[in-house]
Design a protein around this nucleic acid. Sequence first.
DNA 1: CTGATACGCGAAAACGTTTACGTAATTAAA
DNA 2: TTTAATTACGTAAACGTTTTCGCGTATCAG
Lengths: 335, 335
Amino acid sequence: MAETVNIKRLAQELNISIATVSKALNDSHEISLKTKNRVWTLAKELNYTPNPAASNLRSNKTKTVAVVIPCVANNFFSLSIMGIEEIARQYGYHVLIYQTHENIEAEKAFTNSLLNGRVDGILTSVSSSEYNSEYYANLVKKIPLVFFDRVYENLDAVKVTTDDYEIAFQATEHLIECGCTKIAYLFGLENLPAGKARFAGYLDALKSHGLAPSDELVIKYHDDEEFNLQQIKELLGKYKPDALFSSIEEFIIPAYCACRELGLQIPDDVKVLSFSNLSTAKLLSPSLTTISQPAFEIGREAAKCLFKILHNKQLDDEQNIILKSVLTKRESTGC
Amino acid sequence: MAETVNIKRLAQELNISIATVSKALNDSHEISLKTKNRVWTLAKELNYTPNPAASNLRSNKTKTVAVVIPCVANNFFSLSIMGIEEIARQYGYHVLIYQTHENIEAEKAFTNSLLNGRVDGILTSVSSSEYNSEYYANLVKKIPLVFFDRVYENLDAVKVTTDDYEIAFQATEHLIECGCTKIAYLFGLENLPAGKARFAGYLDALKSHGLAPSDELVIKYHDDEEFNLQQIKELLGKYKPDALFSSIEEFIIPAYCACRELGLQIPDDVKVLSFSNLSTAKLLSPSLTTISQPAFEIGREAAKCLFKILHNKQLDDEQNIILKSVLTKRESTGC
DNA sequence: CTGATACGCGAAAACGTTTACGTAATTAAA
DNA sequence: TTTAATTACGTAAACGTTTTCGCGTATCAG
């Protein structure tokens, strides 16, 4: 118990060399089954587990990956992590978590600190505050990295995303079909491809139905609850849109609150629809029409890709994996 | 760039020994300021970062902690992780995540795999499937460990919890004051101190107001959505309680759905109240009266304790830190 | 019977740090 | 002036693995 049990100890007790023990533990073909069994049983008996630091140092493999994301306390990201963790478990990998809080400097600091062999690879969903592709262009040369959801384009790296443009288009059409002609857009992730694609889908849907987009009907997300609420109230009061298309989950609460405070009925006075992974969307008052991304699957898929890369397996075909979101129509768009 | 930059490289370029470089980097008093500055500037210039594996191996410190929890995709736990991560960042620690999915065997396997020097300490919220204190009694002797929320009692370890008994008592009284006399209890975490305390608070509140508890009004959580829904529907149909006290967030959706399917109006026909960290509680239909635990602070507090232990600092006084939950009265208890 | 081949294992180096100890030069105390 | 203490640095061992290389023995084909 007090004695630390390492490979040397096993070797002594079995009267064989530490090289043989090491090889036996790694199931090397150089070792006879008889010897392997002796080693395995003693290892189990003494509860031996290899020292990760020593192993990492020698082999340059850590069996660890890092997940760098804006925030854990977010339905999308916590589901993604869950997916990542599930796959990591299957592959016997460990998972480190880093939160950037949308701060690109923190993001760089974290990823830089991971380049010295702390992890074998990185899974990341980048922060929305800035779009600095130079940094990542260099980074992807130095370490296996997979982007998910919030990605940098045109880089030599795998990206797992969703059909943002198409689903936003489809959702906008849904609002139009419900009779809306003045659809406001609550703009999030404006610096990122995902945010731009969602907005483009919205705009194109408007155009294809002969509706003119208007800057007045677009407001942008700020990291300030009160500010967002006021923005939406002003939007609703001043320009009287008949629908709110929220491109990120963070707008849901202020949107609902704004309507309540102004005495606007959802969906009669204004219809509401949002990108969201909220499990209680159907319990809201009224229940909320959502575009939900397959967060769990995104995490799984991203992790699978990373492990394929780490094991030098051929990636099936493309570097761009695109999963489908689903539009769930509920009372808030009422039709 | 191709050349890996390590301590040896720095030593060569500066024409000093690697020992001197190492000491300089660690700001040892043995090294002159002049030499330190030479080392520091070159280190920065070459973007040197120490190899963690080598450092861990030699020093037996990993600057890493593990968080072992049932599930990431849960409002309480994701907030806790956020708190933990924040403190870990301040102390320069890394955070590993492990999900047990309420499986005690997985839990043991994970924690065992952490005993070989992979981490300096563990933060855990144990699984509810079983209460096996022998295992943890041994574990806490082997590695610094802090429990949060879901704890093992009577062990020599720090525990960060909330005032489960008191807040459950208070919440039950609230229902009674709203005129309820037949309060059903949706029982979760029954094997754990937290679950037992909540239930005890409920029972004692009933008794102190002259209400008789009834087994018929208590149902237990199962890991099966449909089953829970049916259970609640049966409870509502058969025994006509005038309130549902849900001791865990997972009962909210089935409780609301059951009421809707049976045509029962909340709060007129039945009042509902739940432990929950749901951010959208106020947007539900009707808005939900909640007991919310300070999840973020719990994470912060637990992490702080662990780091104090790791730095051999005296823990202020007690091993039991108890934070206050808050009862937020909303429409679902309507009074 | 000889040479080649495979098998099973051990010796030792290597991974990049940290640290106990030694040493020379300088400074302070006696 | 001698001795002790301090300063600034170097040597080398150690942490626990993995892996290359080599060696002896057994097996087998010719």
